[in-house]
Amino acid sequence: MQDRTGPLARFVTGYVWLVRTLAGVSMLLIVAIMLAQVFWRYILGGSLIWAEELCRYLLIWQTFLVLGLAFSKGEFVALEFVPSLLNPRLRWLLKAVMAVPIVVFLGLMAWYGWDFASRFDRQTIPALDFIWTALSGEALGLSIRWVYVSVTVGLALLALHVLADLAVSFRRQVVDNLEDTASDADRTSAGTT
């Protein structure tokens, strides 16, 4: 039986827990901010001018963080007609061939996303500046780059998920081949006795 508590398995478990926790916290914040906005607008007759902007930024980060998990769980749209016609070895080969342009595209998009984000170092996030100024008397000054860098982080994580899926399916293919070879050897030895 395989040991599923090795360092890589613990790392993956921690990574999945962290991403799910961040996604849950961001969704909780979005709901709380929007409920506060509704309360302020319809009960108090005012408006939280920063609420929509902050929720938008939280949703952008949440989306890019969970892309990789969605891919790993098979929640992307997939056309399985051709792969379902192939034997397992050819199916893995097709998956490997298709992974190359996908990873290259994700890498290029992550690179250009980083380049795009770096152009906004001096622009700050207005919603956070407004909130922080109201609380402390001075602007926070957090660069809007940290909103745009979500593209780079999300696409890099998605590329890692694609590569990890390829490695896991290759390992599964090798294990299945070894089991088939062992069962063939067992049948052959059973037939000769």
Rank of each mutant, 00 (worst) to 15 (best):
M1N: 11
D3V: 12
R4N: 14
P7R: 08
L8D: 08
L8I: 14
F11G: 13
F11S: 08
F11R: 01
T13Y: 06
G14C: 10
Y15I: 04
V16I: 13
V19Y: 04
R20F: 06
R20C: 11
T21K: 00
L22Y: 05
L28S: 13
Q37A: 13
Q37H: 14
F39K: 00
F39Q: 01
W40H: 05
Y42G: 04
Y42H: 10
I43L: 10
I43H: 03
L44A: 15
G45W: 07
S47Y: 13
L48K: 01
L48S: 09
I49M: 02
A51C: 07
A51E: 02
E52K: 08
E53Q: 14
L54A: 14
C55R: 05
L58K: 01
L58V: 06
T63K: 01
T63C: 03
V66A: 00
V66T: 14
L67C: 09
L69K: 06
S72K: 07
S72V: 09
E75Q: 15
V77Q: 07
A78F: 07
A78W: 11
E80D: 15
E80G: 15
F81E: 06
L86C: 04
L86T: 02
N87D: 10
R89Y: 13
L90K: 07
L93S: 06
L94V: 15
A96I: 10
P101W: 13
I102T: 11
V103G: 00
L108P: 02
M109G: 04
M109D: 02
M109W: 11
D115I: 15
S118F: 11
F120V: 03
D121G: 14
A127R: 02
W132V: 13
W132G: 11
W132K: 00
A134C: 02
L135S: 06
G137H: 06
R145L: 05
W146V: 09
V149H: 05
V151H: 09
V153A: 12
V153C: 11
L160M: 12
H161K: 10
V162E: 03
L163R: 05
L163G: 05
A164L: 12
D165G: 13
A167W: 04
A167I: 09
S169N: 10
F170Q: 07
R171E: 09
Q173R: 10
V174I: 11
N177Q: 12
T181C: 05
S183C: 02
A185Q: 01
A190P: 02
